[in-house]
Design a protein around this nucleic acid. Structure first.
Lengths: 196, 196
DNA sequence: CCTACCGATCGGTAGG
DNA sequence: CCTACCGATCGGTAGG
């Protein structure tokens, strides 16, 4: 029984794994359950022994990743490191997510709009809180005179979205190590382009 | 005849205008021709008196904007301004596109994957050349010692994708003027977050 | 996990 | 610009 549970869970995970890759490539609405079934190696109808609906797959992908982002951000909360260091950690975390969990992360970013209610509202609310916490870190940094007088809201959006550029990098054949990528993005977003 | 031509063209433009808003909101595959027809105020079948296919609408939206981006970038080409000033102009241009032509620009960025061949390949090729030209500007700035020693490819992706954050800003009710937005993003991406 | 099949909806056409 | 309608495909279910 425990074994059967485990077996079933892992098949479900396999379906979600394949779905994530396809949702990223073609988008959620353009991916059919028949395409997915073929990628998994079973008939479309058989998918429903493991999952409840197409929507459920998207929900699992999105909220798993969103949860990991929230956990990371909260880990920065009561530490005594500087605001700059917190933002650096945030950038590194997102670059790593993009590089190590490319399909899931990209699906969260690009396909969350196709979440049905109440998941859609749930996600946008979570995202708003996430942004607000980062804004608070930046606002503190500005007040501390650690940071230039930027608008925290704008800086937060810039940081969070800049990681999306890695989507193109991933498609291209460029050989850049994860560490180089991380360092470059941290330097650019924290120290800027212009030499002083 | 000339008048009829003009009238027909403007109705087509109206259809594309509405389509752009819907493609942005719900994505290209999730927007049906019946939804679009309703937004336009006619029956679905009547759309085909003005456009050839659903795909054609996407093509028009994407390549109009892509063309404007190319024209701007080429305008920077033989001017004698510094690399930093060129990049500043590039950032301001993209922020303005995002603010003034929000639907079209967002559709280009998010929905180009749904272009059919040969348009899909055409777009990715154009985009690659576009990125390479910006890389060249940054590489020159690094060589000049105008800029910090960043990897041009990574810096280019960071700049181009950071504008995508404005998608969230647009949805939110935040009152930030276009000029403030532009200045903040230019400062962040060029001078960085950290105070020296 | 399969075969067989459902009602709904899709992009698009015929003909007026 | 409409009515009427096409074949294809969609997500999902029944029953085994």
């Amino acid at each position: 029984m425990a074994k059967a549970q485990r077996k079933k869970a892992s098949k479900k995970d396999f379906i979600i794994l394949r779905a994530s890759a396809m949702f990223r490539e073609k988008g959620f609405p353009a991916t059919s359950m028949r395409d997915l079934a073929e990628a998994v190696g079973i008939e479309a109808a058989s998918l429903y022994n493991h999952i409840q609906s197409k929507s459920e797959i998207l929900q699992e992908i999105v909220f798993r990743i969103a949860n990991d982002c929230n956990v990371h951000l909260e880990s920065l909360d009561d530490s005594s490191i500087s605001s700059i260091k917190k933002i650096e950690s945030l950038i590194r975390f997102h670059v790593q997510m993009m590089m190590n969990r490319f399909d899931d992360y990209t699906v969260m970013i690009n396909e969350w709009i196709h979440l049905t209610e109440p998941y859609h509202t749930n996600f946008t609310t979570q995202r708003r809180h996430y942004v607000q916490k980062i804004e608070a870190i930046i606002a503190e940094g500005v007040q501390n005179k650690e940071m230039n007088p930027v608008l925290p809201y704008v800086a937060t959006l810039t940081i969070l979205s800049s990681v999306r550029g890695l989507e193109f990098w991933h498609r291209s054949g460029k050989k850049i190590t994860p560490e180089t990528m991380e360092d470059n993005m941290v330097n650019h977003l924290i120290s800027g382009l212009k030499k002083n």
